[in-house]
């Protein structure tokens, strides 16, 4: 802790080993650097940093966009955790999404990238495109409406009903409206959407791994492709793995749009309600911005925390 604080301190006040310039002189000397940085960081501040702090600040207020925000202390947070059962349900669902689709989606990205890495180039390009297509298109996931359709015209229902001429089920399952099935159906859709930028980074990572290492490894007793993957490839792909983890956290905690589009809003008995749909509920529907910001702040903190934990695990494990 002390060391970390010290290193943060040192970022702002670097040790004056090489130069005897004061801080101001150093800043003045790199004037052109700051000029190049300025346009981006002004926009970045307005559209990313200020919103984050605005969310934190407004979470302590009552704000309906019309009146001036009114400071109400921790009331929003108290209400969230003590009186808002739907929020607790949203947390539960978000955690289910994150815990299931996060790691498995990450694994799916990795294993598919690994599989198609061995294929010849035209086939590999084609496969990459097919796997990446769900992320490439904005709303292709709407096709799942027809796959998991409520009536017997849906692919899954008709398959289950006509299976082996008798069928496993008699009546069509209402995949997206029955609270028993909606989470399962949405998790499957989320898996299908999980091959994004992380997948591309893994694909590229496999290509830059030092190939001579494999021959050396074979001499040293690496016997099959799994040993090769674990002992030789993974340690070299640490950076891509970290990047993929960030991308995976960012998508698996922010499940919301697909729930609204496929299961409707609100979903039956809030069975598919997530933190993101809770923000949508209070922000876009009820206009209780303070409350919505409190929800957003909690989600932001959870994501930062999970990111911190995963990064330190991946760094320590050395891959």
């Amino acid at each position: 802790m002390k060391e970390q604080l010290y290193s943060i301190w040192r970022i702002f006040f670097p040790k004056r080993v090489k130069s005897t310039l004061t801080l101001w002189q150093q800043i003045k000397r790199s004037k052109s650097s700051y000029l190049l940085l300025a346009p981006y960081f002004i926009l970045f501040t307005i559209f990313t940093i200020i919103p984050v702090f605005a969310a934190i600040g407004l979470s302590f207020t009552y704000f309906n966009m019309l009146n001036v925000p009114e400071f109400i202390g921790l009331s929003n947070y108290k209400a969230l955790f003590l009186n808002d059962e739907i929020f607790l349900l949203a947390i539960k669902n978000t955690i289910v999404f994150a815990v299931i689709t996060g790691p498995i989606g990450y694994f799916l990205c990795f294993i598919l990238a690994w599989f198609i890495n061995d294929l010849p180039k035209p086939v590999r390009t084609f496969m990459t495109l097919v796997f990446y297509a769900p992320s490439l298109s904005g709303n292709m996931y709407m096709i799942w409406q027809y796959i998991f359709s409520d009536d017997q015209y849906g692919l899954v229902n008709s398959f289950l009903m006509t299976f082996a001429n008798i069928g496993i089920i008699d009546d069509p399952i209402k995949w997206f409206t029955d609270e028993k099935y909606v989470m399962t159906a949405l998790i499957i859709v989320q898996f299908w959407l999980s091959l994004g930028a992380g997948f591309l980074a893994f694909m590229a990572g496999f290509k830059v791994v030092d190939k001579t290492l494999y021959e050396a490894g074979a001499i040293d007793g690496v016997k099959n492709r799994f040993q090769e993957l674990i002992y030789l490839t993974l340690p070299q792909m640490k950076q891509q793995l970290l990047f993929g983890a960030v991308m995976q956290i960012s998508s698996s905690f922010a499940v919301g749009q697909i729930s609204i589009s496929l299961a409707g809003f609100p979903s039956t008995n809030y069975a598919a309600h997530t933190i993101m749909t809770h923000i949508y509920d209070y922000g876009n529907v009820r206009y209780d911005m303070g409350y919505a910001c409190a929800v957003a702040t909690i989600l932001l903190l959870v994501m930062l925390l999970v990111n911190k934990v995963i990064q330190s695990v991946l760094v320590e494990k050395n891959y």
């Binding site: 990313t48 984050v52 960030v246 991308m247 919301g256």
Partner: peptide, 11 residues
């Protein structure tokens, strides 16, 4: 990069 998923859309 963590917040690309729309978490900060409302603020």
């Amino acid at each position: 990069l963590l917040f690309t998923g729309g978490v900060i859309e409302l603020p």
